[in-house]
Amino acid sequence: MTPSPFEEPPDTQWVGEEAGPIVRPYVLTRGRTEPTRGRFDLITLAVTIRSASPRESGLDPECLAIVRLCHQPQSVAEIAAHTNLPAGTVRVLLSDLLDQGFIVLQEPHSETDMHDERLYRAVLDGLRAL
């Protein structure tokens, strides 16, 4: 039986010692580099709205890890850092999880929102209180 091209070769290392993930991200996303709904920002936030149990969900361990992590809202950048996956891979997995109803996303402030005075006041107050 020839292995499907998407199956992980038996001795593929999940994480390289220093270089980080090697083959796995590509396998995980089945070669896709773009998420289904356009590319979202590093600071787009994801939060879990439906828990996933390993057995019934049929999700990859990485997706399960993301669902677990996002019980507290997390940015794409944080998810990438905690799962040790490249941000591009995380985007693809997040768009899958979104399509499957496990998470919702919150897009960041757009450049036009940057004209909202309340935002500046809130950030200044927050920084002064640090």
């Binding site: 920002d41 709205i49 809202p73 109803g101 919702v104 960041p108 935002l119």
Partner: peptide, 21 residues
């Protein structure tokens, strides 16, 4: 979606908005 508890329903989840510097 039965498994979604109403308090965490997609429409009701209030997420902060992220800003970057």
């Amino acid at each position: 979606m039965d498994s979604v508890r109403s308090s965490r329903d997609a429409g009701r989840v209030r997420l902060p908005k992220a800003i970057k510097i």
